[in-house]
Amino acid sequence: MKRLLSKKNLAILLGILLLYGVIQTLISLGILRTFHQVNLITICISVIMAVSLNLITGFTGQFTLGHAGFMAVGAYFSAVMTVKWGVFFPVSIFSGAVLAAVFGVLIGLPTLRLKGDYLAIATLGFGEVIRVVLLNTKYVGGAAGLFGIPRLVNWTWVFFAAVITVVVIRNLLWSSYGRACISIREDEVAAELMGIDITHYKVLAFSVGAFFAGLGGGIYAHYFYGLQPGTFGFMKSIDYLVMVVLGGMGSITGSILAAVVLTLINVVLQQFSAIRMILYALLLIVIMIFRPQGLMGSKEASLELFRKMGRRSGNGSLGSK
């Protein structure tokens, strides 16, 4: 209890509440209009997706290209529950996330035996299979999409969903589970020799990541009125991958930062989608060549880090190479 209510945690809590309060006030006063709200919600969803992908790719080192597939599972299942079965919407969003996690386990168990690039292709394939199946399922609207989902979530729901995602994943990573995951990233063979059940932790990371991706999908479904299978294609997975890579594979704050920045860039470049994609492509290549660990590397942004930067000596907080 003493540690839970430490000065630092209280400061963070206060900061979060302050951020929420300021934006909520601005919304209530009508200063932030629908356009801004949509972007704020998109940012929060991006944060959820990027941080959960970072758990799988950045911290556990399992390169997946099917994150949008889990998002689709969560989005469609929760939408079907709310619209067709009349379930109370937080329950349906939660169920969608659980189903995504189940998919994570089902996909993870066989494919996580595969190494690096094979896994990437297998998860890409899984994402595409989900998309094609949704495309061919009349019950969820097929290619036309599933529409008529009421807008049930608002800024409060989405913001706190994002906060919960970050806190849960952060605490998971700073536990013995997280250390096991990081050791797998650093050296699988060595981790196995130290007695870590590699498959267990990989599947764990995968399913937790999938759970939050499903949560992101559920929120998406309950904010944007409609779903189309095409939304959750390979490109969507790449969007989130770019956030993780840019922010730093192995840095939660990096992912949050990148999610915010890239979402804003997207808004600016909305009319020029070809330029946006060229920019994304160049960003990926240039970062990989010159700074393969991403902007933040595996460091976390914190007051500590700024203090250290002031003293011109930076040392990573966790799992730095």
């Binding site: 790719t57 690039d117 070809a274 994609m277 060229i278 990926l284 990989m288």
Partner: peptide
């Protein structure tokens, strides 16, 4: 570099060619 870094570069290259052509 790591295989993941090379793979991400390859994905970037792929998008680069595609969208330069789209442009």
């Amino acid at each position: 570099a790591t295989r993941i870094a090379a793979l991400i570069t390859a994905i970037g290259m792929s998008f680069f060619l595609e969208y330069v052509m789209v442009f």
